[in-house]
Design a protein around this nucleic acid. Structure first.
Length: 418
DNA sequence: TCTGGGGTCCTAGGACCC
DNA sequence: TCTGGGGTCCTAGGACCC
């Protein structure tokens, strides 16, 4: 058994660099939606001491002084670049698990030849075909491949590929890696492990598994076993999502019901599109609205409401209708709302449920209508056809003042060379 | 003025069943 | 004095991931 974890370095920042080669050695950061905080940093930006999650409004001055290139997040670009990376990897490895927008596991079992060299080949090919730098970690379990990848990123002299199949090499790394670097061990667990004397990955690997299960959970027990080279996690090839969530901060605080209605209709439409893209129906829907969390003295409120659906559906009209009904029930005047959320639950494949003889019937032609709308929007651009409740240029739209062009998905925004 | 947006899995506890 | 035993399902909350 061997796995590789392939991970793009500072993915969002690297995507921006692909189309601006002069930023090669310049520190780059990418901001969250609404230009809220820093969510991606290049090595140079990290060296300047810019932390993950740094609020932009507090750091703006310094970033400018230091000559940091700052971008709003451009998910159309990142999504497309991610698809290119994954397609490249799928051409190299027979079994690939896309783990996140910038990471994938590959099953190396049975692949001929030198695996480390194969890792190098993957790096080179992704670099040549997409312009994105990646690191490769190799190990007998997924958890060790993850840790190997961390090592490849941390020590540049490894050449971007670290192979942990050799037990001696493994021991050396496990002893110097803090337990918090291990996949599945976050801040809280690290703090609870410390009193037991578990500080390094090595400590965790050699702690009694039964005790770990009793005091923590079966998940941590598996992690410890995986660190010892005993596989407990398999490669999971694409499975449909079990929940779909669309939630956004508004570009500014909203007080009245009307604009919040527009926003929720828009979020529910987006969620419905994601739902149809994976070919599922939603059995349940939930909406939530909340005030800001950070302003001291400002009254806080958070309303959450499950909204019944007449039948499992992917019809935008039905989902928007249910969401707006839920909104009426939780909206309270007098608050400064900052965020709304639509959550689709109880997802299932078409035909995977038993209809109710007496329940309302889906509207005739709904499937064809939705399919047609999706097709037109795919050709003409998102939102070309939408419900009348969803404005083209809403007043509550998020702030994205530093957004780059959609180089790969929009004819009007292609890179021009003169 | 200004602090993200997605997901997953596990566990405990309560309701309910026979 | 004394009041069963075993199971399922659902939900909320907590941890983690990127």
């Amino acid at each position: 058994m061997s796995y590789a974890l392939i991970d793009c370095n500072a993915f969002y920042c690297s995507c921006e660099r692909v189309y601006r080669p002069w930023l090669k050695d310049v520190p780059v950061v990418v901001l969250s939606n609404n230009d809220g905080c820093v969510i991606a940093r290049t090595r140079e930006a990290k060296r300047l001491g810019i932390p993950m999650g740094a609020p932009y409004f507090q750091w703006r001055q310094r970033l400018r002084q230091w000559g940091v290139a700052v971008f709003s997040s451009n998910y159309e670009l990142y999504g497309e670049m991610s698809a290119r990376v994954m397609a490249t990897l799928e051409g190299l490895f027979p079994k690939v698990e896309v783990y996140s927008i910038d990471e994938a596991f590959a099953d190396l079992a049975g692949l001929p030849g030198d695996l480390e060299a194969l890792g190098q080949r993957a790096r080179e090919r992704v670099w040549r075909w997409t312009g994105l730098p990646v690191g490769v970690g190799i190990g007998p379990t997924k958890t060790l491949a993850k840790l190997a990848n961390w090592a490849a990123k941390t020590w540049g002299k490894c050449g971007g590929v670290v192979d942990l199949r050799d037990p001696l090499r493994r021991e050396r790394l496990l002893r110097i890696a803090e337990v918090g670097e291990v996949w599945g061990v976050g801040r809280r667990l690290s703090a609870r492990l410390a009193p037991l004397g578990i500080r390094s990955a090595w400590d965790l690997a050699h702690f009694e598994p039964a005790t770990l299960r009793r005091h923590f959970s079966v998940v941590l027990e598996k992690t410890a076993r995986e660190l010892r080279g005993i596989p407990c996690l398999e490669l999971e090839e694409a499975a449909p999502r079990q929940t779909i969530c669309t939630s956004r901060m508004f570009g500014r605080r909203l007080h009245e019901l009307a604009p919040i209605r527009e926003a929720l209709a828009s979020y529910a439409s987006t969620a419905a599109e994601k739902l149809r893209r994976q070919g599922s129906l939603a059995g349940a829907l939930q909406v939530a609205i909340r005030t800001g969390m950070h302003a001291p003295g400002e009254p806080r409120y958070c309303g959450v409401m499950p909204c019944p659906l007449p039948y499992p559906t992917d019809d935008t009209r039905v989902l928007v209708d249910a969401a707006l009904r839920g909104l009426e029930a939780i909206y309270r005047p007098g608050f400064a709302y900052s965020k709304a959320e639509v959550l689709l639950l109880d997802l299932r494949r078409r035909g995977e449920f038993t209809g109710d003889l007496f329940a309302p019937r889906p509207r005739p032609g709904a499937d064809r209508l939705m399919a047609t709308i999706d097709r037109i929007n795919a050709r003409q651009g998102r939102g070309s056809i939408r419900l009348g409740r969803v404005p083209a240029e809403p007043a509550w739209a998020m702030r994205r003042e530093l957004m780059s062009q959609r180089y790969t998905t929009c004819w009007d925004e292609l890179l021009q060379v003169s």
